Simulated scan of single mutants.
Amino acid sequence: MSNPSISIAGRRIGVDEPPYVIAELSANHNGKLETALRIIEEAKKAGADAIKLQTYTADTITLNSDAEEFQIRGGLWDGKTLYQLYQEAHMPWEWHKPLFEHAHKLDITIFSSPFDNTAVDLLESLNAPAYKIASFEVVDLPLIKYVASTGKPMIISTGMADAEEIAEAIEAAHEGGCKELAVLHCVSGYPAPAEDYNLRTILDMAQRFGLVTGLSDHTLDNTTAITSVALGASIIEKHFTLDRRGGGPDDSFSLEPQELVELCRNSRVAWSALGRVDYGRKSSEQGNAKFRRSLYFVKDLKKGDLITADAIRSVRPGFGLAPKELDKIIGRRIRKDVCGNTPVTNEAIGLD
Rank of each mutant, 00 (worst) to 15 (best):
Q286R: 08
G176C: 09
R313Q: 10
S284E: 14
Q207C: 00
C339G: 07
A273D: 09
L63A: 08
D121P: 02
A225I: 03
A182G: 15
A128Y: 06
D16V: 05
V277A: 13
L260R: 02
K282Q: 12
S26V: 00
G246V: 10
F136Y: 04
Q207R: 12
K299C: 11
R200S: 11
E94R: 10
Q258L: 12
I108W: 08
W77P: 14
I13D: 01
L143V: 03
T57G: 13
G189Q: 09
F115T: 02
G177C: 07
N117T: 12
Y190T: 07
I40W: 07
G232A: 02
N341W: 14
F70P: 08
A46L: 03
R11K: 15
V187C: 02
G214F: 05
A23N: 06
V212E: 02
P98W: 07
S272L: 11
S267F: 00
T150L: 06
W95F: 02
C264D: 00
R333G: 02
S283H: 13
W77I: 01
D217Y: 01
E101C: 02
I40V: 15
G151K: 09
L25M: 10
E237W: 08
D305C: 06
T345H: 11
F291G: 11
G210T: 06
V338Y: 14
P323Q: 09
I6K: 14
K32V: 02
K52N: 10
Q84E: 15
D66Y: 12
R313P: 00
E175C: 03
T227H: 12
T241N: 12
R38E: 15
D300H: 08
V261P: 00
L211D: 04
E137N: 06
T308C: 07
A233T: 14
D162H: 11
I72N: 01
W77T: 02
P4K: 14
E256V: 01
A182Y: 14
A148E: 05
S5Q: 13
P343D: 11
L82V: 00
I329C: 08
L215S: 05
C186E: 01
R200Y: 04
G318P: 13
M1I: 09
P129S: 07
A134Y: 01
E17G: 00
P19I: 00
D352S: 15
I307K: 09
N288L: 14
D352A: 15
A119G: 15
A169V: 07
I22R: 01
R245C: 09
G275A: 12
R293N: 14
V15F: 03
A163I: 11
A43W: 07
N30Y: 03
E42R: 12
A273I: 06
C186H: 06
V229P: 05
D221W: 06
I312T: 07
D16Q: 14
E325C: 10
L306W: 06
F115Y: 15
A9T: 03
K105W: 04
R276Q: 12
C178G: 02
L141C: 04
Y86W: 14
M205G: 00
L181T: 05
S2G: 06
S157K: 09
I349K: 03
Y296G: 05
S5C: 10
K238Y: 05
H102S: 11
L53W: 13
D16E: 15
L274P: 04
A206G: 12
E256W: 02
A194H: 12
